[in-house]
Nucleic acid binder design. Structure first.
Lengths: 120, 120
DNA sequence: GTTGTGTTTAACCGAATGGTTGAACAAGGA
DNA sequence: TCCTTGTTCAACCATTCGGTTAAACACAAC
C-alpha cells in the first residue's frame, strides 16, 4: 500500500468499480452484500475494494449485528481538490503573466531570424 | 493501460513522483533531462512517467531541436474535480436532509428498547 | 451447544507497474 | 561523414493488483 495519504486516495479512485461504489455510497450507507450485488464479481472482491477505500480514508465501517454498513467519508476529497487547485491556479497564473508579457511588449522582434540574405 | 479517461487521470496522479513532476511543470515547461535531475532514477524511468501523464492527457510535448519540452495541460483537472464535486455535494445534501429530519421530529422515541422490566 | 448468515482472511494466479540496462532513433555540430 | 546530445524503445525483473476459491471469523437464532 502507498505510504502517503494522497497516493492512497488517488490510487483508490483509479479503479472504476471503486469509483462506482463511492458513487452509490453518496446516496446512502450500504452493506458489502448490497454493494456487491450489481457486479459480477464475488463479494470477497468487493470486500477487498472496501479495504482499499477504507485505507484511503474514503469510507468507514460500523457494526449492526452481523452486518458492517459502509459509510462514505467525503472530507478526504478535500485533500485532492486542494492539491489540484494549487497547481491549476499556479498554471493559470503563469499563463496570465505570459499573456500580459506578450501584450505589454508588442514591439519586440519576432522569433524569426534576422534574414541574413540567403537568396530565394 | 486503463480504458476510461477518469481512471487514467487518477492512476497517473497516484504516483508521488508523477505528482511532483506535475507540480514542477505548473511552474513552467521543462525537458525530460531537467525533470529527471532531482530524482535518483534513470532518465528512462522519467520518460515512462511522462508517457503515463501524456496518455492521461495531463501533459503535451513539443519539439525544439533535439529537445522535447513537456507542457502541463491543466484542463484535465476539471474531469476529476467535476466527479469529486458531484458526489461530495450529493453526500452533503443527504447529510443536510438527515439533519433536517432529526430537527423537525424531536418527539420521536429514542432507539433505546422500551424497558421490559428486567430487574437490575 | 449447533446451524445459518454476513464478512474477512489466506493462498494462489495472471496481468499490470515501476524500475533497471542496453540499443536505437532524432537532430545539431565538428 | 562522424560524433555528441537528448530521448525513446525493448527486454528483463521484482512487486503490486484485481480476481478467484476455500477457510476462518462474528454474531443471531434455534
Amino acid at each position: 500500500m502507498a505510504a502517503d495519504p494522497l497516493s492512497r486516495v488517488f490510487s483508490a479512485l483509479a479503479d472504476p468499480t471503486r469509483r462506482d461504489i463511492v458513487g452509490r455510497l453518496a446516496a446512502g450507507d450500504a452493506t458489502v452484500n448490497e454493494l456487491a450485488a450489481p457486479y459480477d464479481v464475488t463479494v470477497q472482491a468487493v470486500s477487498r475494494h472496501l479495504k482499499v477505500l477504507g485505507d484511503a480514508g474514503l469510507v468507514s465501517r460500523s457494526r449492526e449485528a452481523q452486518r458492517r454498513p459502509v459509510h462514505l467519508e467525503a472530507e478526504v476529497f478535500d485533500l485532492m481538490t486542494k492539491w489540484i487547485e494549487r497547481y491549476r491556479r499556479q498554471a493559470e497564473e503563469r499563463y496570465r503573466r505570459l499573456d500580459d508579457l506578450l501584450r505589454t511588449m508588442p514591439d519586440e522582434e519576432e522569433p524569426t531570424p534576422p534574414q541574413t540574405g540567403e537568396p530565394r
